Computed example of a mutant assay.
Amino acid sequence: MAGQIEPPAATPEELRALSHPLSWRILRLCLDRAWTNQQLAERLDVAPATLLRRLRILTSTGFVVAEEPRRGPKGAWEHPYRATKKTWRLNLEPGSDRHLTAKVDLAILDAHRAEISENDPSVPQHTRRAVLRLDARDQAELNSRVDALLEEFAGREKSDQAPIAILWNAVERHEPPGRP
């Protein structure tokens, strides 16, 4: 889109922080409210030490911030964490390390799949898959329009509504030799 500022490219350290599905699950949960290490570990069925390691990585790269410590229900001090939305402002496209970028892509897919599998089957879903044959200009336009549409709807968010998980992935399919 004309006049749109290109987001900064993710650093290798940031890509490594995002290369695990647990990172994306944490970011998703901590987007709407602050969670403690213990709360996240219980919700995601992960050992607290594993979760804390991942939180420290996400904190050191600026994807989550620690809020002020607070007293928990039993009087102990808790350290809540909240997502910064930094991933919304980063270019996660392939850089110099395509292998690392591919790991991030797979981590995003795994985290999204986990959210779908945990969802109540009676909750409505809208799923579409398509294969399009577009030149580079049309591919860029499609991605730009999807980005703009998501930005537009992000501006309409209402805090009292249920969050919707959206995953957009456009990847070129390579056909095996000899196939149309």
Rank of each mutant, 00 (worst) to 15 (best):
L92V: 04
R56W: 01
A49Q: 14
G95E: 03
V64W: 03
K103I: 00
K85T: 07
N91I: 00
Y81A: 02
K85N: 13
T84H: 04
A76G: 11
H99R: 15
L92T: 05
D105W: 12
L106T: 12
R53N: 12
T61S: 06
P80S: 01
Y81M: 01
L92R: 00
P73M: 09
I57R: 08
G62N: 00
L106Q: 14
S60E: 11
I108Q: 13
D97N: 13
A107S: 09
R54P: 08
V64G: 05
R70P: 00
A66P: 06
R71C: 00
L58I: 04
L52P: 06
L52S: 11
A102H: 10
D105N: 14
H99F: 14
L55M: 06
L52F: 14
T50D: 12
W88V: 10
E93W: 01
G75N: 00
D110H: 12
L52W: 12
R70Y: 11
T61H: 07
E67Q: 15
A107V: 09
R98M: 06
T87W: 08
R82M: 03
V65Y: 06
G75W: 00
L52N: 13
G62V: 04
D110Y: 10
A49S: 08
P73W: 02
N91C: 06
L106C: 10
Y81K: 01
L100R: 05
N91M: 06
E93N: 14
W88C: 12
R82K: 09
P94Q: 03
L52T: 03
T87R: 07
R89K: 09
L92H: 01
D110F: 13
T84F: 08
P69Y: 14
A66G: 03
L90Y: 08
N91R: 03
N91V: 07
P94A: 02
T59R: 11
D105S: 10
S60H: 12
A66E: 13
L51E: 02
H99L: 15
L106S: 11
L100S: 05
E68P: 06
G75Q: 02
A66H: 03
H79W: 15
I108L: 13
T59V: 02
K86A: 07
L100H: 08
E78M: 10
A107E: 10
R89W: 10
K85W: 04
A102R: 03
I57C: 03
A76V: 07
K103D: 13
P80H: 04
D110N: 12
R56M: 05
L51C: 15
A107Q: 10
T101D: 02
K86V: 03
D105Y: 08
A102Q: 07
L90S: 00
A66T: 09
A49R: 15
T50I: 09
H79M: 12
K86M: 07
T50Q: 12
V104F: 06
K103V: 04
A83D: 01
I57M: 09
L55Y: 04
G95D: 07
R82H: 05
T59K: 13
R70D: 02
L100E: 07
F63I: 02
R89P: 06
R54A: 11
R89Y: 04
R98T: 09
K74N: 12
L109C: 11
E93L: 09
V104Y: 08
L51R: 06
R82N: 00
